[in-house]
């Protein structure tokens, strides 16, 4: 018995020694340092954009559980659902025996999971730079070569630029209002959507100092008179009922792009499908230019 213990002890010392040699330490969006002795093999992701990023880095098979909103790529749809960002089911998460949980900084339960001995990485991409940084961090943690995440980022970036260039020149300088949820919350200049619009040479009625996704007063939009409005399907019904909105130029001349649920997902998630989101926006603007009287 003693011998066995000794052996285990030696192995422990050796293993930790080895692990320390190749340990990776990253800093997450809570500014906490998180160390990994080896690349995690069982990952739970509780934020759709992080799920998509993990998959885009080719590590989809390592996912063992997701939040209830993650739905892309199709291969992740049969994975167990462990609650949402606001109400993660701690018990279900632990039952999956993850060696890494990815969640938003605004999500709940990170401290509780850490107290239970689970490694938590909190990341919340909101801008282009955020996404690039998150992809770098994830590739480092997951043991994906840095060149791979850089290639992916170049691809996304090129896609966004291509979408921007596809815009007809007369569309430049148009004022846009992009609504991300019907509360209503809009995307300002400092969000990744706003940055994409800026690349397209469009103007955003929401200045960046309001924060990336500010809650807005409907009156603000009426005063700003955007040329084009973009919104999800869920916003369409409530939009016309907001006081004064039926008089908006954009609504009267039908310069409104309504995206269905799948398209909205692409649009509002700061993940690897950002370029597709940009393409959707560009197509919509080109369309609305075509119908302009």
């Amino acid at each position: 018995m003693l011998k066995l213990r000794g052996l285990v002890g030696v192995c422990f010392v050796l293993c930790t020694g080895l692990a320390q040699a190749q340990a990776i330490t990253v800093r997450d969006d809570r500014q906490q340092e998180v160390s990994f002795s080896q690349a995690p093999a069982r990952i739970v992701s509780l934020l759709p954009s992080l799920t998509e990023t993990v998959c885009a880095l080719g590590q989809c098979r390592k996912l063992v559980g997701l939040d209830r909103y993650s739905n892309w790529p199709a291969s992740v749809r049969q994975l167990p659902r462990l609650g949402g960002g606001l109400d993660p089911n701690i018990e279900l998460v632990v039952a999956q025996r993850p060696d890494l949980v990815l969640m938003a900084t605004s999500a709940r339960g990170a401290e509780r999971l850490q107290a239970l001995g689970i490694t938590v990485l909190a990341l919340e991409p909101r801008t282009h730079a955020d996404l690039q940084r998150v992809m770098n961090t994830l590739s480092q943690v997951l043991g994906v070569p840095a060149s791979e995440s850089e290639r992916l980022w170049r691809e996304i970036n090129a896609g966004v630029l291509a979408a921007a260039q596809s815009l007809p020149p007369q569309a430049k300088g148009q004022k846009l209002y992009v609504e991300v949820s019907p509360a209503p919350y809009g995307a300002s200049e400092s969000s990744f959507i706003g940055e994409t619009l800026m690349l397209m040479g469009l103007r955003n009625i929401l200045p960046g100092n309001l924060g990336p996704f500010p809650k807005i007063n409907p009156e603000f939009v009426v005063r700003a008179q955007p040329d084009i409005i973009m919104a999800g399907d869920s916003s369409r019904a409530s939009m016309l009922q907001r006081p004064g909105w039926s008089q908006l130029k954009a609504i009267q001349s039908q310069q409104v792009c309504v995206f269905n649920a799948d398209e909205s997902d692409m649009l509002v998630r700061a993940g690897p499908r950002m370029a597709e989101g940009a393409r959707l926006m560009a197509q919509c603007i080109a369309r609305s230019q075509g119908t302009k009287p």
Binding site: L86, D87, I90, R112
Partner: peptide, 13 residues
């Protein structure tokens, strides 16, 4: 967002 979670009330944590 954080407020929403708090207002819901939960014993899960």
């Amino acid at each position: 967002q954080g407020m929403q979670g708090f207002m819901l009330g939960s014993t899960g944590f």
